[in-house]
């Protein structure tokens, strides 16, 4: 396969999960270090369903997502009432447990060898279409009442409650949406590569996603998507960089956190209105240059 198309597919799959992380972290201010575990659930469940029953791939995706959401509900139920720290602690524990579980259930999951022989039916176009759909859904969610309530909770949970917002419910909705999106990313990845391994879903992967969201700007969906795309493209094209990927990422983000805490994009969103404004500003500058 053409390298560009391969990288583009990877970017699309990453963006699906980055959208999930954006809803959870960017909008609601909760951090999950077990998001990758939901990706694992998506990948394994959809893969096993198709391998064992030969059902339609998209139906398997839906079932896998539904399953991930149910698991997410069980994990989220005790923690959404509590301080937001707890969700990070619990999801981290959950991620470790899932990794163990995959190894223990080796007769189904292939254990350390992974799940092989999944039909490679997700090509770059399918991934692209799904990624665009997910991005549109996320954008629509952001400007809905749920998006607003999520931002209110991130900003001040106590005041949000005092405005009548059922914070537990809104936090749960955000968490489940993010579970669903990461599970979808897992499905796509499994049917793109044709293989699922047990070691690809540690906390580092979840941390990578959070880092991508913060790189572009935690308050901006445009920024998060840019962060996801940029940080996936970059190492693929600089093979020399690949070995140092984790270190380079970390240093980049530490710089951003310290010196430009709002990320590359801040709160700027790519909307028609903002585009027009930016264009006008650009024209004005051009005119000034000409006048001189």
């Amino acid at each position: 396969m053409n390298l560009f198309l391969y990288v583009l597919t990877q970017v699309c799959i990453t963006l699906v999960s980055v959208c999930g992380i954006y809803i959870l972290t960017g909008l609601t201010g909760m951090f999950s270090l077990g998001s990758a575990a939901f990706m694992a659930i998506g990948a394994y469940v959809s893969g096993l369903l198709v391998l064992n029953t030969g059902m339609n791939m998209y139906l398997a995706f839906l079932l896998a997502i539904a399953f991930a959401v149910c698991v997410g509900y069980v994990i989220g139920f005790p923690v959404v009432r509590l301080r937001r720290d707890y969700i990070s602690l619990v999801t981290l524990g959950f991620g470790e447990s899932i990794a163990q579980l995959i190894l223990l259930l080796s007769q189904y999951t292939g254990g350390a060898f992974g799940l092989i022989g999944i039909p490679r039916r997700v090509n770059v176009w399918i991934a692209l279409i799904i990624a665009i759909l997910v991005i549109i859904l996320t954008a629509l969610f952001k400007c809905s009442k749920y998006g607003r309530q999520c931002i209110a909770i991130k900003s001040d949970e106590l005041a949000a409650k005092a405005m009548g917002i059922n914070t537990s419910r809104v936090k749960m909705i955000a968490f489940l949406l993010s579970c669903a999106m990461t599970a979808l990313a897992g499905c796509l990845s499994a049917f793109n590569i044709g293989y699922v391994g047990p070691t690809d879903f540690g906390w580092k992967k979840s941390a990578d996603w959070v880092i991508m969201v913060f790189f572009g700007g935690v308050n901006s969906l445009t920024g998060s998507i840019f962060g996801g795309a940029f940080l996936t493209f970059l190492p693929q094209y600089m093979q020399a960089l690949n070995k140092y990927r984790a270190v380079v990422y970390a240093v980049l983000v530490l710089f951003i956190l310290n010196f430009k805490p709002k990320g590359v994009f801040g709160e700027w969103e790519l909307t028609p209105k903002n585009m027009r404004r930016a264009l006008m500003r650009f024209n004005r500058k051009q005119r000034k240059v000409k006048e001189r």
């Binding site: 607003r148 931002i151 209110a152 001040d156 005041a159 405005m163 009548g164």
Partner: peptide, 15 residues
């Protein structure tokens, strides 16, 4: 305790 990250209208809408 106003919600940062939302405009004034959105702040009021939250309620």
């Amino acid at each position: 305790r106003i919600f940062r990250g939302l405009t004034i209208e959105e702040n009021v809408l939250c309620a």
